Amino acid sequence: PAHPYDRLKTTSTDPVSDIDVTRREAYLSSEEFKEKFGMTKEAFYKLPKWKQNKFKMAVQLF
């Protein structure tokens, strides 16, 4: 299930529990994912792991 970005980011005051914290981005809706990352999930997962992590750090999901 998708969760709002505000509850997934590492600085959230009301974090979602029971998620894989190493894959926070996977819980974003497709729309919100595209808004935050500027690309689709499919394109994101084709990137090298280090680049994925760099993007995730930039949007507080790492």
Rank of each mutant, 00 (worst) to 15 (best):
P1I: 14
P1F: 10
P1S: 10
P1Y: 13
P1G: 13
A2V: 15
A2N: 15
A2Q: 15
A2S: 15
A2T: 15
A2P: 13
H3A: 03
H3S: 06
H3F: 15
H3C: 15
P4I: 04
P4T: 06
Y5H: 07
Y5E: 08
Y5K: 05
Y5G: 04
Y5L: 05
Y5N: 04
Y5Q: 07
Y5R: 02
D6R: 00
D6M: 00
D6S: 01
D6E: 09
D6K: 00
D6C: 12
D6G: 00
D6F: 01
R7H: 07
R7S: 10
R7K: 11
R7L: 09
L8Y: 07
L8S: 01
L8H: 10
L8G: 06
K9Q: 11
K9H: 08
K9I: 12
T10R: 01
T10S: 06
T10Y: 12
T10F: 07
S12P: 05
S12L: 03
S12M: 03
S12F: 06
S12G: 04
S12A: 13
T13D: 11
T13Q: 13
D14W: 11
D14C: 13
D14K: 06
P15I: 06
P15Q: 05
P15T: 03
P15A: 05
P15W: 02
P15H: 06
P15S: 02
V16A: 09
V16H: 05
V16L: 09
S17P: 15
S17F: 14
S17R: 13
S17Q: 15
S17G: 12
S17D: 12
D18A: 08
D18H: 08
D18I: 03
I19A: 06
I19Q: 05
D20Y: 01
D20W: 02
D20P: 02
D20T: 04
V21L: 05
V21N: 06
V21P: 12
V21A: 10
T22A: 09
T22M: 07
T22W: 06
T22S: 11
R23H: 09
R23N: 06
R23P: 04
R23D: 04
R23W: 06
R24Y: 08
R24P: 08
R24T: 11
R24G: 04
R24D: 02
E25G: 03
E25K: 03
A26G: 06
A26F: 12
A26S: 15
A26W: 15
A26R: 07
Y27H: 10
Y27C: 11
L28Q: 01
L28V: 02
L28I: 03
S29E: 03
S29G: 07
S29T: 13
S29M: 02
S29P: 02
S29V: 09
S29D: 10
S30T: 15
S30W: 11
E31R: 09
E31P: 06
E32Y: 02
E32W: 06
E32M: 07
E32T: 04
E32I: 09
E32G: 03
F33I: 01
F33S: 01
F33H: 00
F33R: 00
F33A: 01
K34F: 15
K34N: 14
K34H: 14
E35L: 12
E35S: 11
E35V: 09
E35W: 12
K36A: 09
K36T: 15
K36G: 01
K36I: 15
K36C: 13
K36W: 13
F37D: 00
F37Y: 04
F37M: 06
F37K: 00
G38H: 11
G38A: 08
G38Y: 06
G38P: 01
G38V: 05
M39K: 00
M39G: 00
M39A: 00
M39S: 01
T40R: 02
T40N: 11
T40C: 13
T40K: 07
T40P: 05
T40E: 08
K41V: 05
E42K: 11
E42R: 10
E42A: 12
E42G: 07
E42P: 06
A43F: 11
A43P: 00
A43R: 11
A43L: 13
F44C: 01
F44A: 01
F44T: 00
Y45I: 02
Y45N: 03
Y45V: 05
Y45L: 02
Y45F: 09
Y45C: 08
K46S: 13
K46E: 10
K46Y: 06
K46N: 12
K46L: 13
L47V: 01
L47K: 00
L47I: 01
P48I: 00
P48W: 03
P48D: 04
K49A: 10
K49V: 13
K49I: 14
K49Y: 07
K49G: 08
K49R: 12
W50H: 05
W50C: 09
K51L: 15
K51Q: 13
Q52A: 02
N53K: 11
K54V: 14
F55I: 10
F55K: 14
F55N: 02
F55Q: 04
F55W: 14
K56L: 08
K56D: 01
M57K: 13
M57I: 13
M57V: 11
A58Y: 12
V59N: 10
V59M: 14
V59P: 01
V59R: 06
Q60C: 15
Q60N: 12
Q60T: 05
Q60Y: 15
L61N: 07
L61I: 04
L61Y: 06
F62Y: 15
F62T: 15
